[in-house]
Structure formats: C-alpha cells, structure tokens
C-alpha cells in the first residue's frame, strides 16, 4: 500500500495509562471503503486504539493521518478533523437530556452550522431509513439498548463522516438485540463506508471484514483477509485466542 489514497494511516502509536503501556507501536493503514475488524482479548488495546484515532486519548508517540490530515500534528485543528471521524461507543453515550432528534441534530447544527430545518429533515430521513422514525421525539432512556445503539450510529452518520469507528458496539446489548445493530453495520459496509470495528463478534467479523487485525499485548500481531486469519492463522498467539473463542462457542 502506498498510503496516498489511505483513509487512515497510523504509524508507531504508543499509549500508556500511568505505567501500563497499552499500545506499544501500532501501525495500520485503512484504504477508502475498506472494513477493518480489530479482534483480540479484552485488554489487548482495541478500544484504546480506536479512542486514540480521534485523540479522545492523547498519545505519547506516533502519527495518525486521517484523509491526508495529520491529527497528531502540533498545529492540527483537532475539532475539524474529528468531524470527519464518527465514533460509536460500547455504552452508546447518548445525551440523556435530549430527544433522539436533538441528539442527532446537535452537531450538524452547532458544528456544521446547518440550518435547523435542514438538519432535522436529514435526521428524520436517517431515522426512517433505519426503522426508528417513530422514536424521533423520545428520550434515550425510553429506548431499548439496541435502539439506543442504532440512534448512536445515526448520530455519528449525521456528520457524514469519512471514517466510522465502532468500539464493541454490541457488547453492552442483550443477545436478542445484537442482530438489529449488526444489520445497520452490514448495510453501511455494503454502501462502502470506511470502518474500523473493534468486536468480539467473530462470525460477524469474518462475514463483514475486508481485513482482520489480531491485537495482542498492544501490537497488531497478525493481519490479513478473514479467511486466512480465521482459517489458517500463522501466529501461535492468534491460534490460541481463536481456540479459546471456539471453545466458548462464539465462532
């Protein structure tokens, strides 16, 4: 890969929390329209890596370039670059004091300076597209977890991001609600949305990913097309991890 057309380029990223080094030199390049799944045990650094990409967590070393803009540059307009990166969190993080509509339109109105009427029309269209039109005026706490997570995805999409980061978005959901959220992600992948997805849903990763990265102890130990990573992993650590997943009946 040359990196010229890369949606995201990560070079040598290091991140520590106090004395614990969570990322120990991560390199990753994501092409336009590519779907990359990050897998690995809890604590391997998947979530931290996603949170570092838009600098929700400051990093100690390395470079992160999004759509040709280096967010880690000292003079970077971080807010401007963040607009191009959508992130969806495990715990939804909807704004509880706002209706679904206001959750979605807040950033388009305040950040992109869209007229309210237009932002609301766009949000309503997105809600309708993902089957949530009737929840427009509800408050988040009145929705199921699956519905809340779908609203959170729509909130990120309303900013029309070039890159979408999904941080274990189904991990906080009851099993019967997982499918409705995965369905949306599948649809986005079909439309060519560039995505980096941290997930524990191995069969979903196998189905949707163009590339799977196995994170272990703060580095990307192995990466490749899903058939190879899940079918014939080279690294013993990857094999070990997948064996545990299979034993737990999750693949």
């Amino acid at each position: 890969m040359t990196g010229a057309g890369a949606a995201l380029r990560i070079e040598g990223v290091h991140k520590s929390f106090a004395k614990l080094e969570v990322l120990r030199g991560v390199d990753l390049e994501v092409a336009e329209h590519e779907v990359v799944c990050l897998i690995g045990a809890s604590g391997s650094g998947k979530s931290t890596l996603l949170r570092c990409i838009n600098l929700l967590e400051p990093i100690e070393a390395g470079r992160i370039v999004v759509e040709g803009l280096e967010i880690t540059a000292p003079d970077a307009d971080i807010d401007a670059i963040r607009r191009r990166i959508g992130i969806v969190f495990q715990a939804f993080n909807l704004f509880p004091h706002m209706s679904v509509l206001d959750n979605i339109t807040l950033a388009p109105i305040r950040v992109l300076k869209r007229p309210r009427a237009q932002a609301e029309a766009d949000a309503t269209a997105l809600l309708a597209r993902f089957g949530l039109a009737d929840k427009r005026d509800d408050y988040p706490d009145r929705l199921s977890g699956g519905q809340q997570q779908r609203v959170a995805i729509i909130r990120a999409l309303a900013m029309e991001p070039d890159l979408l980061l999904l941080d274990e978005v189904t991990s906080a959901l009851d099993p019967e609600l997982v499918a409705e959220v995965l369905e949306i992600i599948r649809e986005l992948a079909g439309q060519g949305m560039t995505m980096v997805i941290a997930t524990h849903e191995m069969s979903f990763a196998r189905e949707i990913a163009d590339r799977v990265c196995f994170l272990d102890d703060g580095v990307i130990l192995e990466q490749g097309p899903p058939e190879r990573i899940f079918g014939a992993p080279e690294q013993p650590r990857t094999r070990q991890f997948l064996a545990r997943i299979v034993a737990a009946g999750r693949l």
């Binding site: 929700l56 807010d79 990166i85 909807l94 704004f95 807040l106 950040v111 909130r155 990120a156 900013m159």
Partner: peptide, 21 residues
C-alpha cells in the same frame, strides 16, 4: 466523562460540549 467524549467526538469544542451537553 463519556458524555464529554461523545460530544467532542462529534466535533464540538470544549465550550460547546460544556454548554450543550
């Protein structure tokens, strides 16, 4: 803090995050 993280990730500035969220 996750509320601020969500607001900032949408591109809101620190002041906007305080004011609206």
């Amino acid at each position: 803090p996750s509320q601020e993280a969500a607001a900032r990730s949408l591109g809101l500035s620190r002041v906007q995050a305080l004011r609206f969220v």
